[in-house]
Simulated assay, not measured.
Amino acid sequence: MNDETHARIARSFEAQGLMATLGARLAWVGDGEVHIAMPNSPQVSQQHGYVHAGAVTSIVDSACGYAALSRATPEFEVVSAEFKINLMRPAIGTHFLAVGKVQNAGRLLTVCSGEVRAFLSKGASEYKVVALMQATMVLVRA
């Protein structure tokens, strides 16, 4: 992946108000794979103290979308057409990492998979997968 594609993804990410609201940051960008990190905070909690499913879904949807954008030519942007998410366990942890990966990039549709990993302590390498996503992204003219 070239520097311009990375810069285009970073600019797009910075323009998302929701990611700023969630405290999320772009953690890693590669060819067909993007990671988005989010800390646990009271702003992303639900009534039982877990991270809200909406926050978990939002970061993995964006990770999948940016993974698809990493394969798109500059005249295209990406929007979500469809996704399915499996919430596998309560989202408990100090921080979370959404990993989006391209599975197949077609002419206008890109199928991605994603997962959200929960880490129990800062600097930890062990994690639990709390959510899995399958998503279809659509390329639209910029």
Rank of each mutant, 00 (worst) to 15 (best):
H48N: 06
V140K: 14
I85H: 04
E82M: 07
E82H: 14
A37W: 09
S125N: 12
Q103V: 15
S70E: 11
A118G: 02
A63C: 09
H95V: 03
M1Q: 12
G17S: 09
G93C: 06
K101E: 14
N2T: 15
K84T: 13
V60E: 04
K84A: 11
K128T: 12
G106T: 10
A135W: 05
K84S: 12
T73M: 10
L139M: 11
G123L: 04
Q134H: 12
L109T: 12
F13K: 04
G114A: 05
I36A: 06
D61W: 04
L132F: 06
C112S: 14
L139Y: 15
P42T: 02
A27F: 09
M19L: 03
E14P: 05
F76N: 09
N104H: 15
G123W: 10
E33M: 14
A20D: 08
T73P: 10
R89M: 13
I92D: 04
D3T: 14
V138P: 03
G23N: 10
A53Q: 08
S80C: 09
P42E: 04
Y127S: 10
L132I: 08
F96T: 02
N104A: 15
E4Y: 11
A118W: 04
Y50W: 12
V140Y: 08
T73V: 08
D3C: 07
E75C: 11
A72D: 05
A135I: 03
A91M: 00
V116D: 05
Y50K: 02
S58N: 06
M19V: 07
V130P: 05
S41Y: 01
Q43Y: 00
T110Y: 05
R71Y: 12
G32S: 08
V51K: 00
T136M: 10
T110P: 07
F119H: 02
H6V: 13
D3Y: 06
N2S: 14
M19F: 01
H35W: 15
I92N: 08
V129F: 06
N40F: 10
Y50D: 02
R89P: 01
S70G: 13
L120K: 13
S41A: 09
I59L: 11
A67I: 07
T136V: 12
Y127P: 13
H35Q: 09
K122G: 13
R25A: 12
V79M: 07
R71T: 15
A20Y: 00
V51I: 08
A105G: 11
P42L: 02
V129D: 04
V29R: 04
K128H: 09
V44N: 00
I9D: 04
C64W: 04
H52Q: 01
K101D: 09
V51N: 00
L120M: 15
R89W: 08
A7K: 12
A37L: 11
A15S: 14
K84H: 02
L139Q: 13
H35A: 10
M133N: 06
V130A: 01
V140F: 14
P90G: 04
H35M: 07
L120T: 07
